[in-house]
Design a binder for these strands. Sequence first.
DNA 1: TTGTATGCGTTATCAA
DNA 2: TTGATAACGCATACAA
Lengths: 332, 332
Amino acid sequence: MKDVAARAGVSLGTVSNVLNRPDRVSASTRDRVLAAIGALGFVRNEAARHLRSGRSRTLAYVALDTANPFFTDVAKGVQEVADAAGLGVYLCDSGGDPARQASYLDLLEEQRVGGVLLTPADAADPRIAQLPQRGTPVVLVDRAAPDAEHCSVTVNDVLGGELAFTHLAEMGHERIAFIGGPLGLKQVSDRLLGARRAMCAWIEADLTVVECEALTVAEGRRAGERLAGVPASRRPTAAFCANDLLALGLLQQMVQLGLRVPEDMAIVGYDDIEFAQAAAVPLTSVSQPRHLLGRTAAELLLAEADVTLGHEHRHLVFAPELVVRSSTRHHR
Amino acid sequence: MKDVAARAGVSLGTVSNVLNRPDRVSASTRDRVLAAIGALGFVRNEAARHLRSGRSRTLAYVALDTANPFFTDVAKGVQEVADAAGLGVYLCDSGGDPARQASYLDLLEEQRVGGVLLTPADAADPRIAQLPQRGTPVVLVDRAAPDAEHCSVTVNDVLGGELAFTHLAEMGHERIAFIGGPLGLKQVSDRLLGARRAMCAWIEADLTVVECEALTVAEGRRAGERLAGVPASRRPTAAFCANDLLALGLLQQMVQLGLRVPEDMAIVGYDDIEFAQAAAVPLTSVSQPRHLLGRTAAELLLAEADVTLGHEHRHLVFAPELVVRSSTRHHR
DNA sequence: TTGTATGCGTTATCAA
DNA sequence: TTGATAACGCATACAA
């Protein structure tokens, strides 16, 4: 800025004014300063601006796993809102590792980012409570805040389970399998709970739980083997999978064993990832408003960062939607 | 730091020494300072450190599309190297949009990041040349540097095309289709070129080009329709797709039309994304060393950032590998 | 409308 | 081994 001022024949303060309050500067000097900036290739130093102003122009989203399309879609929603507010976004990937989550949170606090969006790998990390206490607001994404210390945005998994089960029951299925696990995951148990609730309305329908060790394609295949081993007369005619990876694995196994989808086995997945519709038999799936989740989380964060005092934490819950495709059509 | 100094009964400089050169401080005062830091919950201000030291402790990777697993895998490699060097990584997503790429590059230059890794959405953006000139090193990822202004890391797509074609020819296929496009993309044309080169060694083998408008699942389906329309006696018995999305779309269409894979149509994809092996018929695919690509790019960047002067730009090319799965087994 | 001066939180140099 | 002090580049209050 000193060089710019010298070249334009003005003082340092005037250059600053051109940058921050151009209306306070006469047109002619403004043009001269702008010309000098262009000629010298001057670029503002954000570290200095931040230090002086005390405000950071960046947010961060610490995602659970960027390899999962769910989180990159959430991230896109976050970016949109941040862009509109003229803020940058750090996208960090904890990869499900508590240690990496911890080191990112430390790093971000040192950076004094304007706020942190977090889908925790370790919800018990004391940093999650400390950050807001020390002035960095935190919004939890896809994870409810048990302590009301933060805002949070989540999707109603119980409702998702209800939607999936009801759809299968309406298609005439009576022997239905729930494939998912570990049941310790709230997301999984809520989806199962929803399915069970929906079952109350369908006296003839029955639900068998096939528990898995993880929400992976490989586990989906294993579940498929187990189901295929059951005699056709007793085998479930439909499966509700706790996520799309399981559903894809199940579908793959069915195809390989020569069972038809949906004729021998209808399948509903969860998450509606891009590849759900790219499957050999396009997959019916429960879709979550990922983009909106990200947008809303970012908006809550900005709201909290704006208000110095008296912020009311909010906990927003969104509704999922069922997307029907070939993997459940044509029963009866 | 002032508060910490006061509470520990030492001067500001001593606190700084405890933080940066603990050996210069006696054990007793060091303990006192550390205790004060803990009690006060003091966290270093990175903006001030950066301003004073002139060095940023962060890198950035501006990816073309974080929804594409290819780039998130590259990003993981980058993160590893950065972590090991005690650096943070900004992961930015241009989403293929030149305007977003531009605004990220501007933002990152203002932040004075230590360096930028870039898979360009717009390789012609003048910023790409400007950044290094102004002191921010840039390494191109998955894109060669035409001007030798930057380091770059790429994968040999011609070789990948050769591998794919040779494999199909070795399996006994003589009528082979190349599915890909637009041919204006260097990645696509190189893969086709490789296939053509390999063809020279197989006199009986023939290559038909089916051009697509984009590398998407939908285009793969369309290509499948076109191929299925050809009488079986003249129809290609194998297809080499320019990426896995096309291959997945093709596979989906084949299954829906009742054609068998690989018996009626063998399929080779490209990229070996996670879902390649999750497909109904697990997909043979050309795998790129994504992780290594990211690691190497980050190492080149660190090397360039370290040396003040006399840096020699390097252009590394990696070799892809063929991963054989069910979609090409059992011919003849 | 423009210029001057001060301080943001650190690090590093020098003196004690 | 420790303390005082000057920058780092910018934004702003205030003076001109």
